[in-house]
Nucleic acid binder design. Structure first.
Lengths: 202, 202
DNA sequence: CCCTTTCTTCACCACCCGATGAAGAACACG
DNA sequence: CGTGTTCTTCATCGGGTGGTGAAGAAAGGG
């Protein structure tokens, strides 16, 4: 029932859901590459080897398709949970390691895609802000409990955003080609300092 | 001859260059807000109170207009020079202060605009990368002279990108509404640590 | 077997896109 | 005043856009 994994049963039934998922995958790629406004439904359909009308058949409208593409979460939370499982003194490392390891697995991950399209698409911006608030800011703030927890959490957000943009979007060297361990070595203490270091207020 | 500064003589001559600059200003705003692909020449013309054909009269094509909008630099360098004027032990503060002060003056600054449109526009990405390499990475690396200078400079880039995205693009709280001094207090030491702190390699 | 449901295609709509070319106003200069 | 240059508008072109509706293939169920 509902959706299965990648391509389902060995004996394909009529088809249908396969086309739907192919459209979804292609749409994700193109929206990610060119943004919402510059991506055409026909380009998605062509790239997916499908008639343009099918896009409107499965997903009613272009915005609905975008929402279907961008509106999937729930895949990251298990990894995020492990961040907050350990102690507070090594959480910086865990944040960086979890972030980079998960994003390295696929550069089409929702976080990268949203970060990419947020600047030019209000819907993406809202989703990304919501995700950041819910999964990062709130949980960090709750874990710290200090008065400046919100500010410290925001500093971590800056690290996450900067790292994401530099490594996965702009691919700035040598950040883009560094190993996971290298990045953890470099940015782990930095993030740790954001959370538990003494404030800049001297 | 050629172009003058902002609006030239007190008694406006026929007009002309004024329309040209009005188009430029409007185009910068719209390209910044919606990106290249999602911005139409007609929308620019309408917002500028000008016939669409005038856009093509002054700038031959849409891409040329974008190039004219995005291809301006030289305004920031004097401020950047002051960063590298002082000593190495307080350069972190100066980087953050200069960045935030300059970007606070106008959120339509080239750096913010390029950062905004880089994810969806190859031309913007190239310009932004070139700017970062030339004005930040190279100068920091030259100033440090250590073997890991490139990596340290890249870490500063991560800070700059993260700060820019968080404060000026996504407007994440409380980063967006913090004062300049607050941000300098918080991120100055962080940037300083990137450059002169001990490496994470223990 | 027919008939229904699901998927796919095709033809088509109104609209907007970037871009062109020529005609019309506003001015400068002689 | 007349002429030429500069700026502005208008009408238009070919093409692509998001979106719709009906007709045509598979597949399933009775």
């Amino acid at each position: 029932m509902a959706e299965d994994g990648t391509h389902g049963r060995p004996g394909r039934w009529r088809s249908g859901a396969e086309s739907k998922q192919r459209i979804l995958r292609t749409a994700r790629e193109l929206f990610d590459e060119h943004g919402y406004g510059a991506t055409t439904v026909r380009a998605i359909a062509t790239a997916a080897g499908v008639d343009p009308a099918m896009v409107f058949y499965f997903f009613g409208t272009k915005q609905d398709l975008f929402a279907a593409v961008a509106g999937m979460s729930g895949t990251v939370p298990p990894a995020i949970d492990s961040i907050f499982a350990g102690g507070l003194d090594t959480i910086g490392e865990r944040i960086v390691r979890t972030l980079v390891e998960n994003l390295d697995k696929s550069d089409r991950t929702p976080l990268v895609m949203l970060t990419r399209s947020a600047p030019t698409n209000p819907q993406s911006e809202a989703l990304l802000r919501e995700f950041i608030d819910r999964e990062i800011t709130d949980r960090i703030a709750a874990m710290l409990g200090t008065p400046d927890a919100a500010l410290r959490a925001a500093m971590v957000n800056v690290q996450i955003l900067g790292l994401t943009v530099a490594r996965y979007i702009m691919r700035i060297e040598p950040i883009a080609s560094s190993s996971v361990d290298e990045l953890v070595d470099r940015f782990g203490p930095l993030v740790q300092h954001c959370l538990t270091g003494r404030t800049g207020q001297s």
